[in-house]
């Protein structure tokens, strides 16, 4: 069974987002998502400094199976991207909640995270898709 972290929020499209102490939001894809994708072979990341709106396609993850869009969970500015994924995209499979993160966003409104899925709701979603 795929791991569902308790300390993050989720999108129904399988991204997770976590608010750090400095109020930046770290975004990645869930364990369930990486397992469904299979081996990740390429990640296309946005430009640091670019603006994204919640729901925008902001990155692409390509696995052996297919290309999938990664959606921005919040509106704000990209402050960092995970360069590790450029040379080691398999990190997304190995540690989706940790070193396999995609981007950091400085949200315009940090409170907007609270409207995203709680771990329990996301767990139920994954079970319904299984």
């Amino acid at each position: 069974m795929a791991e569902v972290r308790d300390d993050v929020r989720y999108l129904a499209s399988h991204e997770w987002v976590k608010l750090e102490a400095d109020e930046t939001a770290v975004v990645g894809i869930s364990d369930h998502a990486q397992a469904a994708l299979g081996d990740v072979v390429y990640v296309e990341l946005p430009e640091v400094g670019s603006r994204v709106a919640a729901g925008d396609e902001m990155a692409v993850v390509e696995s052996v199976k297919a290309a999938s869009d990664i959606y921005a969970p919040v509106t704000g500015e990209i402050t960092a991207v995970n360069r590790v994924l450029e040379d080691a995209p398999e990190t997304v499979n190995e540690a989706p909640f940790d070193t396999g993160w995609f981007v950091k966003i400085r949200p315009d409104d940090a409170a907007s995270l609270e409207s995203l899925l709680l771990p329990s709701a996301y767990q139920a979603l994954c079970e319904s898709e299984a």
């Binding site: 299979g38 081996d39 072979v41 052996v64 199976k65 398999e90």
Partner: peptide, 8 residues
């Protein structure tokens, strides 16, 4: 079977 864990 599409794969048994890792296609690569």
């Amino acid at each position: 079977p599409i794969h048994y864990g890792s296609q690569i």
